[in-house]
Design a protein around this nucleic acid. Structure first.
Length: 641
RNA sequence: GCCCACGUAGCUCAGUCGGUAGAGCACGUCCUUGGUAAGGACGAGGUCACCGGUUCGAUUCCGGUCGUGGGCUCCA
């Protein structure tokens, strides 16, 4: 006689055991159709799950996050069924849900082709249309393993054999096809249909590059066609924001094969670069950092002492001269330690903050390179804080405040913090790591920021905080970092005289806010879809004449704006004003300034923004003031709608 | 580095079932002096990524190299 309690507190009693689906049906026909699964006393179960005792029940539909996840998971199964119905000798492995969709990895004798993808999708549609009921059965572990071995599914068998022996294994079947799965799943394949297979890729079995390569099929799945279409449209939008395309179209930079993984910054791109660099420079100076410049090439012996040679050699570019082996710096820290070591330092000198816009080279695998986002030559807004163990907390708090301020100026306010602890390959004893992690934990608690753990992802020399910012279309980018290093100064023999006259090795905080300037600029371009805020726009205003009659005044106006600190250009070409407006709008110039006869007479300009807003005619001084006001707000309070 | 796909004019892309290629935009010249997202005419521009092989002949077919894209791995 189960008594079922629903989320709204209402109760229903039944005179015999009922399934989740039957409870839904007792509430209404619409809910019965929509019901995908249930949550019984906090555990997700299938709609066919039999309730034989009192329970709290929540009916899961596609409107619940869990429901959407199930749709994706079940669609992954549908894909596997389709693939195996077409290629019976393809072996299934795993098919998890990911953001916006799912993937499924198959072992197959040859790579899948785009034509295969079409076939798979068509078969999936057929199977969905057939509305096959999905049912669950349970086997003891050993029996399940033997079953999968018997039907030649060795990857599945391997997965099962990793599960504790006492546990029972559930299998889900639809039609004549069956797969190992924890579940739950939607009640039938007819609940699926709004999906699309997106792409093919290779992926290693268990994510290990020493293992064999599997064929991964990516797909997306949604509760209905409308949401699917909205997602596909959004993807197109993201493509339009691609910084590589915009970088070319806006004349910011280019890359070519003679310098793989490096960037050729064009005048406009470098203007943007300098604006950012000068801004960060002033923020750092305000916070007591001293800027330096350290050498690009440093002797191997230094890298051996710092631990890089042992832990980072595969990423380093090597050069040779007069029989000495040199390495192009992949990081700035050893150089900064050498600067610290010049002269005797006292505890009174701490914290000592050394900053550098450090140009680093790392020999990244070719497959990792991607536009500005992943390069081999990049520049960090890097700095090292030499301090005592007691100062770690306050310095961390100060740094986090600065970082949040800087991000806000760039218009990023959604920032997440991750705590990455000791990686498998590392320098220093466990005892030192215990202390470093302890100090960093205490420091991050002192900031009051919420954080999540990122196990095993620390730098080889210390644990780190990672600062992840979310962009305008919801993508996450790790930019800032703060790393606590208890070992580097000892390895490089850097010390200071403590209050009691003894020599001590300072703690080093490695920190960056933007991370790589190259990458940060890429993020800015995509975040703003090329419409950089006025303070960053390489060209802030273009003055254009309507006929050649206004040429003199247009020149005068442009010079005036330049003298007022506006990055202004002039367009005197013999073209119609509509043509010029179109071009500079597409070039994302924030302010389009037109000089016709009327404006010449009143020594003013007709002001239009790149978003098409007509701000009317303003005297020259007012135009300059308006642009200056907009630029001064940085990314915080944009005037433009 | 690994898997798959791709590489034709500055850009976006057609095309050649093997007979050295075409459009639009951009560029140049000329006409047009036009008030807020494309005025018109003419013209120039390509070792079809690179290196080999097959062939009478390769941009096209085959192999390799390099690069790019999407993944994997890695990561700022």
């Amino acid at each position: 006689m189960p008594l079922i309690t629903l989320p709204d507190g209402s109760q229903r009693s039944f005179d015999k055991p009922v399934t989740v689906g039957q409870v839904a049906a007792s509430i209404g026909a619409g809910l019965a159709r929509a019901a995908l699964a249930g949550e019984v006393d906090g555990t997700l179960v299938d709609a066919s799950h039999l309730l034989d005792a009192d329970a709290r029940l929540r009916i899961i539909t596609s409107r619940d996050p869990e429901g959407l996840e199930m749709i994706r998971h079940s669609t992954a199964h549908l894909l596997a069924q389709a693939v195996q119905s077409i290629y019976p000798d393809a072996q299934v492995t795993i098919g998890p849900v990911i953001d916006n969709g799912f993937y499924y990895d198959f072992a197959f004798k040859r790579p899948f082709t785009p034509e295969d993808l079409e076939k798979f999708e068509a078969r999936m549609q057929e199977l969905a249309k057939a509305d096959l009921p999905i049912h669950r059965r349970v086997l003891p572990r050993d029996e399940a393993a033997a079953h999968f071995r018997a039907i030649g599914e060795r990857y599945k068998a391997e997965i099962i054999e990793a599960i504790p022996q006492a546990e029972a294994i559930s299998l889900y079947g639809q039609g004549d096809w069956e797969d190992l799965c924890r579940g739950p799943h939607v009640p039938s394949t007819g609940k699926l249909g709004a999906f699309k297979l997106m792409k093919l890729a290779g992926a290693y079995w268990r994510g290990d590059s020493r293992n064999e390569m599997l064929q991964r099929v990516y797909g997306t799945a949604w509760p209905d066609e409308k949401q699917l279409k909205a997602y596909l449209t959004q993807l197109e939008e993201a493509e339009k924001r691609d910084h590589r395309r915009l970088g070319r179209e806006l004349g910011l930079f280019h890359q070519q094969e003679e310098a793989v993984g490096s960037v050729f910054w064009h005048p406009k791109g470098h203007t943007l670069w300098r604006t950012i660099e000068q801004y960060v420079r002033s923020r750092l100076a305000n916070d007591g950092y001293q800027e330096v410049k350290s050498p690009q090439l440093l002797d191997r012996s230094l890298w051996e002492k710092s631990g890089h040679w042992e832990n980072y050699a595969e990423h380093m570019f090597i050069a040779e001269s007069e029989g000495r082996m040199l390495a192009v710096k992949p990081m700035n820290c050893p150089g900064h330690v050498l600067i610290f070591k010049q002269g005797i330092k006292s505890y009174r000198d701490l914290p000592l903050k050394i900053a550098e816009f450090g140009s680093c080279h790392r020999n990244e695998p070719s497959g990792a390179l991607h536009g500005l986002m992943r390069v081999r030559a990049f520049t960090q807004d890097d700095a090292h804080i030499f301090c005592t163990e007691e100062q770690v907390s306050t310095e961390t708090v100060k740094f986090c405040n600065l970082l949040m301020e800087v991000y806000a100026d760039f218009g990023f306010t959604d920032v997440r913090v991750k705590f990455a602890d000791r990686p498998p390959q590392r320098a220093g004893s466990d005892e030192i790591w215990d202390r470093a992690e302890g100090a960093l934990r205490e420091a991050v608690e002192a900031t009051g920021l919420a954080y999540t753990m990122n196990p095993g992802e620390g730098a080889f020399y210390g644990p780190k905080l990672e600062f992840v910012l979310r962009d305008a279309i919801g993508r996450d980018w790790q930019c800032g970092t703060l790393q606590v290093d208890f070992g580097m100064t000892e390895r490089l023999d850097a010390d200071y005289v403590a209050e009691d006259g003894s020599r001590k090795h300072p703690v080093m905080l490695h920190r960056a806010i933007l991370g790589s300037l190259e990458r940060f600029i890429g993020i800015l371009i995509e975040n703003h879809a090329g419409r950089l805020p006025t303070w960053l726009a390489p060209v802030q205003a273009v003055v254009m004449n309507i006929t050649s009659k206004q040429e003199g005044f247009a020149r005068e106006a442009m010079e005036f704006l330049k003298n007022q600190g506006v990055r202004a250009e002039i367009d005197l070409r013999n073209e119609k004003v509509g043509f010029k407006i179109r071009e500079h709008t597409l070039a994302r110039v924030p302010y389009l300034l037109v000089a016709g006869d009327r404006e010449v007479d009143s020594r003013s300009l007709a002001v239009r923004t790149r978003s098409g807003k007509d701000l009317g005619v303003m005297p020259l001084g007012e135009v300059a003031a308006r642009i200056a006001r907009d630029a001064a707000a940085r990314g915080r309070d944009l005037l433009e709608g």
